[in-house]
Structures are given as C-alpha cells and as structure tokens.
Design a protein around this nucleic acid. Structure first.
Length: 268
DNA sequence: CTTTCAGCCTGACGGC
DNA sequence: TGCCGTCAGGCTGAAA
C-alpha cells in the first residue's frame, strides 16, 4: 500500500527518466480507475514535453507545457520504467512512451488510483493540510487544531486537512514511538506530547524515504519493491505478537474502519 | 460544524 | 482441489 515514502521514492525513481522528455504516445488500456480515464487524455498529451515532476501529499504531478497530469497510486498502484518491447503484465492499465525511448507503465490491480489531466488545477488539492516534512507541520499545529475534538488521535493525524501523507502504517508506528494510545481522544493530549508525536511522524517518514532511496535502481527494468518495506515495523500488522520493547501482547482494535495495533503497556 | 460510514476493487488467506 | 466468505485500505461523498 503506497504511503508517502513510496510516492516520494517513485518520484525520485522515474523523474530523471521522464522530465524534459516528449510524450510520444500515451495509451490507456483500462481507464476504469477511481475516476474514468478517457481516451482524450492521449490526444491532449501527445507531443507535449514534461517540464517537471512534483509531489503534493500522495499525489504525483507531471507538469506539461499545457496543463498537468495528476497521478495517485491508490491502494495498489505503482509506476515502473520498463523495456518498451516487454510484454504487458496483468493490471498494467496505462503506459506512456517517451521521446528518449523510456516507457512508463502504471500498474494497479485494485484500480483505486487516479490518472487525470487538467489545465485548471485539481479540487482534490484544494483543502490539504501541510506536508509533514516541512516546518508548517509541528506539534503546536496538532495541539491547536485538536482542541475540543473528541475524535481518536489516530484518525485525527490521518486527516488530510490536519497533515497530509500520514497513512495507517506510519500513524501506527509514530504513535507507538510516542507512547500514545491510538484511541485516546485528540482533544485530551498535551502540547508536549503532540510535539513528541510530530517529531516521530517526521522521523519515521524521513527514515522510510531514506531507505527507499536504496532501491531506486529497481524502478528501471526491475521488479523490486521500494525500500521502505525493509523497515522494521514495531506495531503495524503485528497484532497478537509481543511488543518489541516490553514483550506485552500487542492489541488490535478498529478505529475509523482501520485496523490499529498498539501496546497496551507502552502506550497511554 | 464534526463524525461516521458505504463504496470502489482485486488478491491473499482461512475454513471446509 | 476449489469454492466461498472475509479482510485489507486511501479517498470521496453522503448521511447522521
């Protein structure tokens, strides 16, 4: 499941191979993604140059001479540079052949992702909170926006209006490192603890991106997974197993329709 | 306003 | 062995 570090790793992996290149041909094999991908996108983008690639939250933005394409990997999406002659795999829904011969393929079994073109901005980006790795995001912001809110802290930090890019994995891990129970009411957490939490969110995302950097070569003619999968997870996916810190059995609950694992001894 | 929840979709997995 | 039910989850949009 692509979290922010995988999106960032994807950007760094494919960016150098497509920025500055002409789009020779874009082909939609299956446009049934979150929003329908129409054939029109091929005609609009063909012959245009990609001038830049950037990321906002978990969205990738390919800037074109006219407009831009916005890509989201959803739950199961990935972008890979492949040999143009190579056979398409099942669930390779979109491919883009570049002027330099590079071929970018979008693969997404669950089709929760998106691939849009617009020259007029994207409503999805309108009400997003700050990027987690900038100074705009800190414990003070978490404290201020959480006052009088009864929602549990885990769904609170996963709310994209509060801060973007904190998915289930890293929300769980950051709360463990901070010693905060995921079901604690967001409005009843002190400024001091929020400062600790914000620091751990930054730390866990930053280290995952760094580890992702070790496998960037896999984005070219490779099948490797981004490096953050190598990261040791303390709680995510470990319900019923012993805590890495105190060996207490980790507890699994559901918060906002998402599984949440925590240590009942270390997290309060 | 805040909060909750169904729905989108396929693959993996467990039970029989 | 294969069938069936359940689960996983980011995000949207509607309901409470």
């Amino acid at each position: 499941m692509p979290e922010l570090p995988e999106v960032e790793t994807t950007l760094r992996g494919v960016g150098p191979h497509i920025v500055g290149q002409l789009i020779r041909r874009l082909t939609v094999h299956n446009g049934s993604l979150r929003w329908p991908v129409t054939e029109g996108i091929a005609a609009i983008t063909q012959g245009q140059r990609i001038t830049a690639i950037r990321r906002r939250a978990k969205y990738l933005l390919l800037e074109l001479e006219r407009g831009s394409m916005m890509i989201h990997l959803g739950m199961s999406g990935s972008l890979r540079l492949v040999d143009p002659g190579s056979e398409r795999r099942k669930h390779d829904h979109i491919e883009m052949l570049m002027g330099n011969g590079a071929c970018l393929r979008y693969h997404d079994p669950r089709r929760f992702g998106a691939w849009l073109w617009s020259d007029n901005g994207y409503p999805q980006l309108n009400h997003l909170g700050p990027e987690p790795l900038t100074d705009e995001f800190d414990g003070e912001r978490l404290f201020r926006l959480s006052r009088k809110r009864k929602m549990a802290v885990k769904p609170f930090i996963m709310d994209n209006q509060i801060v973007v890019g904190v998915g289930n994995i890293y929300a769980s891990e950051a709360l463990f490192r901070s010693g905060i129970r995921p079901d604690r009411s967001a409005g009843r957490i002190s400024l001091q603890r929020y400062q600790l939490l914000a620091d751990h969110i930054k730390q866990v995302l930053h280290s995952a991106i760094t580890q992702g950097g070790t496998t960037l070569r896999d984005f070219v003619n490779g099948n490797g997974e981004p490096g953050y999968f190598q990261q040791t997870l303390d709680v995510y996916g470990r319900g019923g197993e012993p805590c890495h810190s105190c060996a207490t059995t980790l507890k699994e609950i559901r918060l906002g329709q998402r599984s949440s694992v925590f240590c009942p001894a270390c997290q309060r």
